[in-house]
Design a binder for these strands. Structure first.
Length: 488
RNA sequence: GCGGGUGUAGUUCAAUGGUAGAACACCAGCUUCCCAAGCUGGGUACGAGGGUUCGAUUCCCUUCACCCGCUCCA
């Protein structure tokens, strides 16, 4: 697939009603997208398949649905307030941008020392530069020196060594990655709260509620599906990185000693789920994180990645979060979130393995992966080879012609299939045109009612990928569809 | 946020300092047909704002959005 293919996907998405640009008639809002009639069907299919795989089909996983709005202290406790903003500076000469902490970590000690002095404190002997001095410098800039100028301290741009690292630094600016809003009608500062940057915390703060009501014993999981918001610095690649997105998260609570084994288990489980969605195996991989890639809460992590036209990119992270989150809430909140282990007769904080997936990314993966162009009788045929369980429409019903009672018979069959599957009725245009339309929508099956139906009450069932047709009795259509859908 | 590119119909494109055209798609009708057939008719666009000009889709500025690269990223 060439690099233009993401544009083809965007174009098809709009043409067929999968995805529209948000607020399009007002010029659009950056990197926000709306799901159209086909899009929402497919998205729901994906979410339902996840829910079924994670929750419904397991005895020891339960679901929940927390509010998007949460108490501000949740994000203090989780570390998001602390960790989820970055101070950035640009080198005006080279137009390169850096995270200030990353930049300072590689500077000569003298520069750091001078910087600290200028900000009004003196580093003590033996104090770790990376862990104590630099964070202190950054805190000082955020809290007290909003317009601090970095020039004159000998801070070198190592990416600009050709020019002796020369730099003219901008005033450091803070990027807060959480979206704020005002809770309540008055806009005083006491009512500022955040839209959740992840769904996971909704699970952690309800840990005890779920344990007591669902009567689960370790190991067990709590799963949640819902919107999350992040003020990403860079968005783009269509649905891939957006500021509003939907997550599918599982928090699986275990005894600490099982962490390694469970991380492996869930990595495989989750990788297999994408395969079961029909995503090509050679486009999927499981990639362990390097140490320096790990998030603040995380001791080990795998990414499930897909090879998009724009490169290998993350669909899901499976992480060993240790006891970090529950510990943090136990420090901050009045009510303790612990588990009483009947076996050893003690309260413990369980370790958690998290599998955090993006709905929109999975959706995009399915579209990209299913997109096909082929030639039929010298004409291009575009089709989405979506698995039936993923496809927005399972089956389309066509009367071959609009007379001789064929539409009436078709309606009857349509109504019958409708009880079980998502069906589309189309009597407009030539039969070939109607087939092609459904090919682009990814509809796996087409039922055509023709003249022979009048004689022997059979219809044709067309397969999207092979375009082959089988003749089946009209009253067996539903059974036949069920049969074909059984193993896919 | 920086650099580059792009923005005209649903889509893909064209033309033009004098008010926009095609193909395909879409809708209605005819045809009654098994893989985007044909015929007739129809609706739909210069991303937004400002400036220059008698007149701007075209030139200039601003802005918005998309794509690519950088930067960043749980």
């Amino acid at each position: 697939m060439d690099i233009k293919s993401i544009e083809k996907i965007v174009s098809l998405s709009k043409r067929r009603g999968f995805i529209f640009q948000s607020s399009e008639i007002y010029g659009g809002l950056a990197s926000t997208w709306d799901y159209g009639p086909l899009g929402v069907e497919m998205k729901n299919n994906i979410k339902n398949l996840w829910w079924k795989d994670i929750v419904t089909s397991r005895r020891n996983v339960v679901g929940m649905d927390a509010a998007i709005l949460m108490h501000p202290e949740v994000w203090e406790a989780s570390g998001h307030v602390e960790e989820f903003h970055d101070i950035m500076v640009d080198n005006k000469l080279t137009k390169k941008r850096y995270r200030l902490d990353h930049l300072l970590e590689i500077q000569p000690p003298k520069a750091i020392y001078d910087l600290a002095k200028a900000l009004g404190f003196k580093p003590k002997v033996g104090e770790s530069q990376a862990n104590i001095v630099i964070p202190k410098i950054i805190r000082e800039i955020i809290e007290n020196e909003k317009d601090f100028n970095l020039n004159g301290f000998g801070i070198i741009d190592y990416a600009n060594l050709k020019n002796k690292g020369e730099a003219d630094w901008t005033i450091p600016t803070q990027f807060n990655l959480m979206l704020k809003t005002h809770y309540g009608p008055s806009e005083d500062s006491s009512s500022v709260i955040y839209l959740r940057p992840e769904t996971a915390q909704g699970i952690f703060v309800n840990f005890n509620n779920v344990v007591t009501t669902a009567r689960q014993k370790l190991p067990f999981g709590i799963a949640q599906l819902g919107k999350a918001f992040r003020n990403e610095i860079t968005t783009g690649n269509f649905l891939f990185r957006t500021r509003e997105f939907e997550q599918m998260e599982l928090e699986y609570f275990i005894y600490p000693e099982d962490a390694k084994e469970q991380l492996e288990y869930w990595s495989q489980e989750r990788l297999n789920w994408y395969k079961k969605l029909g995503v090509r195996e050679d486009k999927l991989r499981l990639r362990p994180h390097d140490k320096d890639e790990l998030a603040h809460y995380c001791t080990a992590c795998y990414d499930i990645e897909y090879e998009f036209p724009f490169g290998w990119s993350e669909l899901e992270g499976i992480a060993d979060r240790g006891t970090y989150d529950l510990d943090q809430h136990n420090k901050h909140a009045k009510k303790k979130q612990t588990y009483f282990d009947q076996v050893n007769n003690q309260h413990i904080v369980p370790t958690v393995i998290e599998a955090s997936a993006g709905v929109d990314r999975t959706f995009l993966t399915c579209l990209v992966d299913a997109y096909c162009e082929e030639e039929v009788n010298g004409e291009q045929r575009i089709l989405l080879k979506l698995l039936p369980k993923v496809a927005p429409i399972t089956c389309a019903v066509f009367p071959l012609v609009n007379k001789n009672g064929l539409p009436e018979i078709s309606e009857k069959i349509f109504t019958e299939i409708q009880t079980e599957f998502s069906v589309f009725f189309d009597q407009g245009g030539s039969i070939g045109r109607r087939y092609r339309r459904q090919d682009e929508a990814g509809t796996p099956f087409g039922i055509t009612i023709d003249h022979q139906t009048l004689e022997d009450n059979t219809v044709t069932l067309r397969d999207r990928d092979t375009m082959k047709q089988d003749r089946i009795p009209a009253d067996k259509v539903l059974d036949e569809l069920k049969k074909r859908l059984q193993n896919v």
